[in-house]
């Protein structure tokens, strides 16, 4: 899937090794009785937007709750800006957390809720209400801010919740499934807002199991599966590392057989499939393949109408990673 938002302005996340780490987890484990939440996680986040990906029950919410200081690790260590988020409450001033669930204090209005949350996050009382109004406005909730949360739809609750997370201007945002139940227009607004916060210097960890939501936000991901970090980093780099699966390139051109004949001799090409309008090439060295492709096109003056990579996206990467973790990879 092609990203719908330009990512160029957003700072990279884990890859930016020059920045001091925001999150450092070492041997981090959490059990709920006999149920495993996360297991032996070693993970470092340095900034930007990081998408926390994983199927339901993978441990995304547990990891976010650990980072928010809501639960204590059963084993291992977790540091946010060098401090323990469960024990050191000062560090929580820098954290903005939007939980996964919709529950809120229904008797309060959106403005009262966000104002109270801003105050509890350390914003001085006179400044709390303007900050709350500003946060609600950013989430498109100005018209509804004097209404009680009880009457809110799922999407409005979601936006109010996000406003509580950003009202005190934290520099580390933890957003657990923030786009669930939000309509497409509001979703685009929220995505834009999260990206603005990241451009402004905030580190954002967003969890989701909906891949295109993450894809719209960032290319920096961490894949959680069965309580462990399966992969982390740039989605395209991760894709390159999955050498078990050849990289697929779809080409639509006027004379596909000529192109196929030229590529068939190459060592890195694992398979070529000729279709009605073009061909599908599977290669183990995509960069080299693209170079040779360009040379062949120029040499034979081929007319190429489409050049795409059907598995160079998050969905494919996610499928490959979880499939190999399940042990059912080919």
């Amino acid at each position: 899937m092609t990203p719908v938002v330009d990512r160029t302005a957003v700072p990279s996340g884990t890859a930016d090794s020059g920045r001091p780490p925001v999150v450092v987890a070492t041997g981090l484990s959490k059990w709920y009785g006999h149920v495993l939440g996360v297991s032996d996680i070693a993970w470092t986040v340095r900034g930007g937007i990081i998408g926390l990906l994983g199927p339901n029950g993978a441990g995304k919410s547990t990891l976010i709750k650990l980072m928010a200081g809501l639960i204590r690790p059963s084993r291992g260590q977790l540091r946010i800006h060098g401090q323990d988020p469960f024990a050191d409450r000062d560090v929580r001033r820098r954290i903005g957390y939007a939980p996964e669930h919709e529950s809120a204090w229904d008797e309060l209005t959106a403005l009262e809720l966000v104002t109270a949350m801003a105050e509890l996050a350390g914003v001085a009382r006179p400044a709390a209400e303007p900050a709350a109004k500003d946060a609600l406005a950013q989430m498109g909730m100005t018209d509804a801010m004097h209404r009680r949360v009880k009457g809110f739809s799922k999407g409005m609750r979601q936006r109010t919740k996000l406003a509580t997370a950003i009202a005190h201007r934290p520099d580390f945002l933890l957003l657990d499934e923030p786009l669930t139940g939000v309509d497409p227009i509001a979703r685009a607004e929220i995505v834009a807002r999260i990206r603005e916060l990241a451009v402004g210097g905030a580190t954002v960890v967003v969890s989701s199991h909906v891949l295109y939501e993450i894809e719209a936000l960032t290319s920096e991901i961490a894949v959680i599966y069965r309580g462990q970090v399966l992969a982390e980093g740039n989605v395209y780099e991760i894709r390159r590392l999955i050498d078990r699966h050849p990289h697929r390139i779809r080409i639509e051109c006027d004379r596909p057989r000529i192109l196929a004949a030229a590529l068939a001799a190459a060592e890195h090409v694992a398979r070529i499939e000729i279709t009605d309008h073009g061909l599908l090439v599977e290669t183990r060295e995509p960069d080299r393949c693209y170079d040779e492709l360009a040379a062949t096109v120029l040499e034979h003056s081929l007319v190429v109408s489409t050049l795409s990579s059907p598995d160079n996206n998050l969905s494919a990467v996610f499928d490959y990673l979880t499939a190999s973790a399940r042990g059912d990879a080919p």
């Binding site: 409450r89 001033r93 939980p99 809120a104 949350m117 996050a121």
Partner: peptide, 14 residues
């Protein structure tokens, strides 16, 4: 039980 405690404990509140 309602999980609204998360709003309080995620903040720098004793």
């Amino acid at each position: 039980e309602d999980r609204t405690i998360a709003y309080l404990w995620a903040r720098p509140v004793p």
